[in-house]
């Protein structure tokens, strides 16, 4: 069942993105930025945690989960140490994604040549 939920949720988010892309003049960059802000908004009211409980990995894969884990990490340490905690903890949950993307992109650009 969780597999079906993952499929439906991730597909649905992508469908909304495609809907925006087809019907407006926004570029993919605009759409991804919009979705990150949306994910941050949903998490600041605790809604995104419910979504993850129901839809499992399907909710962790779209870029909305990037905004979710930024707010989540910031709030986790912000509750203990106030405004400074927001700054300290913001990347604590997303660092794995960003750092590995940077490292992998750097070494692949050394190894491979651009094709076009």
């Amino acid at each position: 069942m969780i597999y079906f939920n993952s499929f439906v949720f991730c597909g649905f988010v992508c469908l909304i993105g495609q809907l925006i892309l087809d019907n407006t003049k926004l570029t993919p960059g605009h759409v991804t930025t919009l979705f990150v802000i949306l994910g941050a908004f949903l998490d600041s009211f605790g809604i995104y945690d419910l979504i993850i409980d129901i839809f499992g990995g399907g909710a962790l894969v779209p870029i909305t989960s990037f905004g979710h884990s930024l707010v989540h990490g910031a709030l986790l340490s912000g509750i203990n140490s106030g405004v400074m905690g927001l700054v300290v903890g913001m990347f604590s949950l997303t660092s794995a994604g960003i750092i590995s993307a940077i490292i992998i992109a750097f070494f692949f650009s050394l190894i491979f040549e651009p094709k076009n």
Binding site: S6, F7, C10, G11, F12, L15, Q18, G56, G57, P62
Partner: peptide, 19 residues
């Protein structure tokens, strides 16, 4: 739209499977 739905859904499914 259906292409986006099925490919995106498949990546979500792969995410849950990998977890």
């Amino acid at each position: 739209m259906s292409l986006a739905f099925f490919v995106g859904g498949f990546i979500g499914l792969a995410g849950q499977f990998l977890i």
